[in-house]
Design a protein around this nucleic acid. Structure first.
Length: 816
RNA sequence: GCCCGGGUGGCGGAAUUGGUAGACGCUGCAGACUUAAAAUCUGCUUCCCCUUCGCAGGGAGUGUGGGUUCGAGUCCCACCCCGGGCACCA
């Protein structure tokens, strides 16, 4: 295969760009120009290095950044490293090295790889979440939350990963497995720091509507927050003082209640059991609680009768109270009303234990199909004065009645739970709190930040539920900021996600070495205009970051309600076998290898050419060669163009064709980049190269340097190295980054010839080509009558109707 | 089960948003160059039929079935399949 000297070219220009510490791509704080903030999701610098998925997103934002720079924007395009947390720590443990030594090496490797791709970052703003000058602010924001009562410590059954030896947030458990290592998680009762994200549930939900995000991500967040509006209803227990509160969204079915079910974790279960049944209930409850602790999920429904009865507040009917594992302790009140006719789970339970089924809602219209259960809204029956109402009206009316009796209240429930924020691990931001035997929990003073993570010998998780930091008594022992007496530091650390909650702001402070939280800079740069990254963070990073941002907004530390206006998810790049890339499958494509074989420019263009940015698509070791050939042809063409550089064109007219085509390309490229349709733009450039090559072979002594260099400018954001090299080869003096983006001439875009598709009964039968724009119907008819296909399809037939669309199509409708 | 996406040649994918389906790339085939191969260049490449082999003609075709329309890959209804997310959330 022919190879243009990409190694030499790429090395040469990367070195030139590196000069002056990459000042070429430096964003100018507070400049008068229009700003645009283009952000990538920063990587975890794992030991594996960059993968092709990173390259995809990072190339896309690089194209945008270079494009907007050439269009006169003040572009902020920074990069950093999310280096705290489990991936780095687990890798360090595996390699038996201290993360404190190891992580900087990983970062160095990532940085090198990013630079080898020619990505135009503002490297002076580079940050790492592990840098004390950075996590000083992570700790600072945490303390602000503490100050506002958003941080609390609570002992609760939480998710625990036995392999990572740490507690996890709900968001980190995917399908019952640890998000990082894939081990099945357990439930453990641990005392943990929580952050009250639930206080922001409503706003996190509402403000989604304003965001230019992919619909599926918004939907995932909506589902995760899981708002449901319903009623909490009190049921008396016959013969007991206690009352049972249940939560329901289907108050319209309350006449259909035939039993009450308590979660095994509900304290009432033992209190309201009939003495004859108590032993049985106790045994069941203990067993179920044990199972829950061990993280065992029973798919099989089980349950026991308590021997007691509740009283339906509306019709005073006595209904049995059960305890069952299908009722969650953590949602609503840990108790439900069982309506087997209108809820599938209740129905299954009733069937298993042979409980009564009463139907109180029927379909609104049509056939009253007598299926056993009907879960939709409909018309209420068998419900006293509420019969005949629609489900919606019934909910309202019944709610009113019960509320006036003090037996119900309208309640909004969220599925979202508070964020478990402490980790029993070493490699994270220390939580800046002190446990004082006299004063209780005392926060560190702001001036004492950062609280630096100490170097330890043994950083492996202890497995006791204690952080490794616990063993460093020197560090743990401290003085209480309040009473100055002896006290101990909190030894747990923050989760992986803490540092990434605000890093897009970190880049803005970077220019002052993170010393100041300069609101003018935030006012200028925020919000992020385009944010590109993988969809895997939909309910993790993206939810947490929105939460922190809203908090910062509330305490007037940021000027906007939302951090990221527009979000783009790049699709997954699959292995050549169409499967997800993984080491165990052996289908991983390493970007370093590709760069070695074809160069960074080919890699960049190929990844953009594979298909739409958002789609997942398989790697093809054949297709990338096509892209490489394209760049080789551009290179060869440049050589040819150079030969004619000194010639004077006798006939300017002949170039008109090139200019029209070029003008079109400028238009298509400009619009295509704005709309992130990179794959289409590249196809157009390939077509243009094809055209130009043919053109030049017919007009071999024409000087087209000027035209060619416009093409090179268009190519530049995609393939910066080869473009820059050709530019200077053909006499360009400056760096292309400083050049203006070519403008297109709207006049020239107007087509010279116009096609009229001629249809007969909607079928294409011919095309009329005219040089006249906007032919009238009669003119087109005239032209059609001269065509051979006219005789064949139209002449002598009865034309019922003619549909004529100006500039596009004429359709003859022929009758029988 | 529920909620989002999406089904277009041998493959990855285009299609001005209702107006010439298959751009561009890959693969394959043929040719040129070459002692030869590689590389490169040129042409063909949705399927089927007819053919006087002409740069000719006809038909079908965008997951399936129906509908709206002069005209549907694009809009509507039903179904099938694939991918992703959530999953005892009452």
């Amino acid at each position: 295969m022919r190879k243009y000297p990409f190694k030499k070219i790429e090395k040469k220009w990367q070195e030139i760009w590196q000069k002056n510490n990459f000042s070429l791509w430096q964003a100018k704080d507070l400049a008068k120009q229009k700003k645009i903030y283009i952000l990538d999701m920063f990587p975890y610098p794992s030991g594996d290095g960059l993968h092709v998925g990173h390259v995809e997103g990072y190339t896309a934002t690089d194209i945008l950044s270079r494009f907007y720079r050439m269009n006169g924007y003040n572009v902020l395009h920074p990069m950093g490293f999310d280096a705290f947390g489990l991936p780095a720590e687990n890798f360090a443990i595996k390699k038996k090295k201290n993360p404190i030594d190891f992580v900087p090496k990983n970062i160095e490797r990532f940085r090198k790889q990013l630079k080898s791709l020619g990505l135009s970052y503002d490297w002076q703003r580079e940050l790492s979440t592990t840098d004390p000058s950075y996590y000083k602010w992570t700790q600072y924001i945490f303390l602000k939350m503490y100050e506002r009562g958003l941080v609390y410590e609570k002992s609760a059954p939480i998710n625990f990963c036995p392999s990572c030896q740490t507690g996890l947030a709900d968001e980190e458990v995917i399908g019952g497995k640890c998000e990082r290592c894939g081990t099945a998680t357990e439930i453990r009762n641990l005392k943990q720091w929580h952050i009250r994200i639930t206080a922001y549930a409503e706003r996190l939900l509402e403000d989604l509507d304003e965001l230019d995000w992919p619909e599926n991500v918004k939907e995932m967040q909506r589902n995760w927050i899981g708002k449901s509006v319903g009623y909490e209803v009190l049921f008396m227990v016959d013969g007991f003082e206690e009352r049972i509160a249940i939560f329901t969204t289907r108050l319209d079915t309350i006449y259909g209640v035939t039993f009450i079910v308590l979660s095994p974790a509900n304290e009432l279960a033992l209190k309201i059991s009939h003495p004859n049944y108590l032993l049985n209930v106790e045994r069941y409850v203990q067993e179920e609680r044990k199972k829950e602790k061990a993280g065992i999920y029973d798919k099989e429904i089980s349950g026991v009768f308590t021997g007691s009865y509740a009283i339906n507040p509306l019709n005073q009917k006595k209904i049995p109270i059960w305890v069952s594992n299908y009722v969650l302790a953590t949602y609503g009140t840990g108790a439900i009303m069982g309506v087997p006719a209108h809820d599938e789970r209740d129905f299954n339970f009733a069937k298993k234990f042979d409980l009564e089924v009463i139907r109180v809602v029927v379909p609104t219209e049509g056939v009253q199909n007598f299926e056993e259960i009907f879960i939709e809204d409909g018309v209420v029956i068998n419900s006293d004065e509420f019969s005949g109402l629609s489900s919606e009206e019934a909910r309202e009316k019944i709610g009113e009645k019960l509320s006036s009796l003090g037996l119900a209240r309208k309640v909004v429930n969220y599925r979202l739970r508070d964020w478990i924020f402490s980790r029993q691990r070493y490699w994270g931001e220390p939580i800046p709190l002190i446990r004082c035997p006299r004063c209780g929990i005392v926060p560190l003073k702001e001036k004492d930040l950062p609280l630096v993570l100490p170097r330890v010998k043994y950083y492996k998780p202890s497995g006791t539920g204690e952080s490794p930091l616990k063993n460093i008594s020197k560090w743990v022992k401290t003085r209480c900021p309040k009473c100055k007496g002896e006290a101990e530091r909190e030894t747990q650390t923050m989760p992986q996600w803490a540092g990434s909650c605000w890093y897009y702001i970190g880049y803005l402070l970077k220019s002052k070495k993170l010393r100041n939280w300069d609101k003018r800079l935030l006012q200028y740069w925020l919000p992020v205009d385009v944010y590109v990254g993988g969809v895997e963070h939909a309910v993790l990073h993206l939810l947490y970051a929105r939460f922190w941002h809203k908090f910062l907004y509330d305490i007037k530390m940021v000027p906007t309600k939302e951090p990221f206006v527009k979000l783009v998810n790049q699709g997954l790049i699959l292995g050549p076998d169409g499967q997800k890339m993984s080491k165990s499958r052996g289908n991983v494509i390493n970007p370093d290898d590709v760069i070695k074989e074809y160069g960074a420019d080919t890699l960049r263009i190929y990844e953009m050419f594979m298909g739409p940015l958002e789609d997942s698509k398989p790697w093809s070791i054949e297709s990338i060669k096509g892209v490489f050939r394209f760049l080789n042809r551009v290179w060869a063409l440049a050589g040819q163009v150079k030969k004619n550089k000194i010639r004077k064109n006798k006939d300017q007219e002949i170039l008109a064709e090139v200019r029209v085509k070029l003008n079109e390309l400028i238009y298509e490229t400009t619009e295509g980049i704005k709309n992130l349709k990179f794959n289409v733009v590249i196809a157009k450039m390939m077509s243009f190269e094809n055209f130009l090559r043919n053109f030049l072979s017919k007009n071999s002594n024409l000087n087209i340097v000027d035209e060619f260099l416009i093409f090179i400018r268009l190519l530049f954001p995609f393939a910066p190295h080869i473009s820059q090299e050709i530019f200077s080869l053909l006499g360009g003096k400056s760096l292309l980054d400083l050049e203006k983006w070519p403008e297109y001439d709207k006049e020239l875009l107007v087509r010279k010839t116009f096609n009229y598709v001629v249809q007969v009964n909607g079928k294409k039968r011919g095309v009329i080509v005219s040089e006249k724009e906007n032919l009238t119907e009669n003119e087109v008819k005239e032209l059609v009558s001269e065509q051979t296909f006219y005789k064949k399809y139209i002449k002598g037939k009865k034309v019922v109707k003619i549909v004529f669309v100006r500039g596009k199509v004429i359709n003859f409708v022929i009758g029988e």
